[in-house]
């Protein structure tokens, strides 16, 4: 038996909970290993010192006091408990997954939307025929960008079909302060129903 295994069983050994055969192996190891022997001695000393606390009996009137408290409870307390339990009547594993998955997915979706919305703004130079308030807001959103690409409204860009499995590529900020796509980007198919279409500079 090596030190690691002995240390794993040392508390059970000290408390006399190990099966006889394993206890014998531990004792054999302790005879030859000084470090483990010291650890065992410390554990034994701590256990011995803890024995100074005896057991106490709860006060005899305690049960009657508990029953008095229960009888004094308003009836709706018990009904509330039942209602709460009915709400929780979902499999525990599902409940645990839902508790973490829903906020996580929501947070991830928010990050993706914010990122895509920021990076896919149209260049300042883009001129939209008949641009008004509605067209301007459409430019700032991914779906608006897609619609404008489809209509050929981004001068200097063209539609390309991308491999949806390709890695996301970088974005370079131009001198004029606008974001320009230097390489084709992959956009999740969920946002681009035609399976990943975006623009690259001509």
């Amino acid at each position: 038996m090596n030190c690691e295994r002995v240390l794993r069983n040392i508390d059970d050994h000290v408390d006399g909970l190990l099966p006889a055969e394993e206890a014998e192996s531990v004792r054999d190891h302790l005879d030859t290993c000084r470090d483990c022997r010291e650890t065992a001695a410390a554990s034994k000393a701590a256990s011995t010192s803890l024995a100074v606390w005896g057991d106490l009996d709860p006060p005899s009137a305690c049960f009657d006091q508990i029953m008095a408290k229960i009888q004094a409870l308003p009836p709706e307390t018990l009904e509330r408990g039942a209602a709460r339990n009915a709400r929780r009547n979902v499999a525990p594993t599902h409940r645990r997954i839902l508790r973490w998955a829903v906020p996580s997915v929501a947070a991830a979706a928010a990050v993706v939307v914010a990122f895509v919305g920021t990076e896919h703004r149209a260049p300042k130079s883009a001129r939209v025929p008949g641009a008004g308030p509605v067209a301007a807001s459409a430019i700032a959103s991914p779906s608006g960008s897609r619609a404008m690409l489809a209509d050929g409204l981004y001068p200097g860009y063209e539609r390309v079909h991308l491999d949806p499995n390709a890695w996301l590529q970088g974005v370079r900020r131009s001198d004029s302060g606008t974001n320009q796509l230097t390489r084709p980007r992959v956009v999740p198919a969920a946002q681009f129903s035609d399976g990943g279409v975006f623009a690259s500079p001509r």
Partner: peptide, 27 residues
């Protein structure tokens, strides 16, 4: 849980030792 017990016992033992109250035990 086992690791917690190990750490706690170490602290107890060294605390008692510092106070000169560690019981002498032979293994």
């Amino acid at each position: 849980a086992q690791n917690c017990l190990r750490r706690a016992k170490d602290k107890l033992y060294f605390g008692l030792k510092q106070a000169g109250l560690a019981p002498a035990v032979g293994m």
